[in-house]
Design a protein around this nucleic acid. Structure first.
Lengths: 232, 232
DNA sequence: GTCTATAGTCTGATAGAC
DNA sequence: GTCTATCAGACTATAGAC
């Protein structure tokens, strides 16, 4: 009823988001979460039922609004394009910006959620997979449709590969900020999210609309099925 | 002395590579490794001393030959270019091909090592970090030099970002083959490593030599330091 | 709703026989 | 070198007082 101080439930969620992102699900004990959140150990099982349900709660809390905003922005971009193909740069921005925005808007601050989502995609928790598929599949369908319209010359299989590379670039860049500053000798700031967004869009736009190399061109003339392993 | 059957040591390494790649370091118990390898629990500590040393052994076993081959191929490409800039496609190929080749040549077969290296870069084990830096830093220096020569118009900071995206695309694509087949409705084959290599080169070549957008162009006129966070 | 106390399980590591 | 047996510690989850 009263909302005077951060509720136990939210303190747990914020702390769990940070620790799961830093250390992963199985390396983070409930004891560590409750200690750092300043709540009792048993309160996790009271509020969430189990460690796994807590993990689901942490992910869904941000993923759902992010994906809703993506769809909203993409719809706006389509209306703005007025039946014409939506520019790639706009498509990419509707995909990336909500992620970076919500990820940094958390009460825990910083990029805890970016690390977490990157980690969960690289290292999925089995009990979470079904939930993730339900969140992500409609998104894939929607983006595939709009990208196909904008890039009619790129075969669908090729487009899937390039979308895969795009997502990889986004998540890897987002999750490796600390190493990145070291590798670049401080030249690049990992926490420069707005700069990261623009550079990602530059890079991925060029990659998505890249000319097809000879081999890919040959594929494009085929009926649609992808080729198997080829060793020229 | 005799090499008649796969030695205990190698059976442990192969099994550990597969399980660490699938489940991660801390989710994989020594008991599971020894059970599946068909060796005794105590043999791990006899041959490697500890679980952590086993993990190091698994990674270094493949990473060292891969990086040695990268440097060798890059040197060859430079000699072939004869003082001229090495084409980006060639540079990328020297970086990616040894990874895909060694990763699939293991006696465990398949892509176990690709998953493992991707996982370790996303979720580094603290005891492994120093070793990884020692393996990777000379490589970064070498590739930065040759890329700078080929792409003189791209500021160094911008180049670092793009290399980051490139590595992300490579590792993400390599580590998500199963999901990838599902997402593309079977259209793309995740185990098509040669096709993956060529598509990565297409995508990343375009990304690396992409024209600088307005904001990046403004950066390029500055003295060399990267800009801080900008929120236009 | 919040706490203490603890049950029950699994872990990495090692001692010591062979 | 390879085994069995076992230790000491950490974990999740829950029972039950308040």
């Amino acid at each position: 009823m009263s909302t005077e101080s951060p509720a136990t439930r939210d303190r747990i969620l914020d702390t769990a988001e940070r620790l799961f992102g830093q250390q992963g699900f199985s390396c983070t004990s409930l004891r560590q979460i409750t200690d750092e959140a300043g709540v009792n150990l048993a309160s996790v099982n009271y509020h969430f039922g189990s460690k796994e349900e807590l993990y689901k709660g942490v992910l869904i809390r941000r993923l759902r609004p992010i994906n809703e905003e993506r769809i909203k922005l993409l719809t706006q971009a389509e209306q703005l394009a007025d039946e014409q193909p939506v520019p790639i740069r706009s498509i990419l921005e509707t995909f990336i910006r909500p992620l970076l925005r919500h990820a940094t808007a958390g009460s825990a601050g910083g990029i805890a959620f970016l690390r977490l989502i990157s980690r969960d995609l690289t290292d999925p928790q089995p009990f979470m997979t079904a939930e993730m598929v339900r969140e992500i599949d409609p998104l894939i369908e929607r983006y595939t449709k709009v990208l196909t319209k904008t890039l009619p010359g790129i075969p669908l299989a090729e487009l899937f590969w390039r979308m895969q590379f795009t997502v990889g670039g986004i998540l890897y860049a987002a999750a490796h900020q600390r190493d990145f500053e070291r590798i670049s000798c401080g030249l690049c700031r990992g926490d420069d999210l707005e700069g990261c967004l623009r550079r990602l869009i530059d890079f991925c736009t060029a990659g998505l609309e890249a000319p097809l190399s000879d081999f890919a061109g040959r594929l494009a003339t085929q009926s649609g099925s992808d080729a198997g392993p080829v060793h020229p």
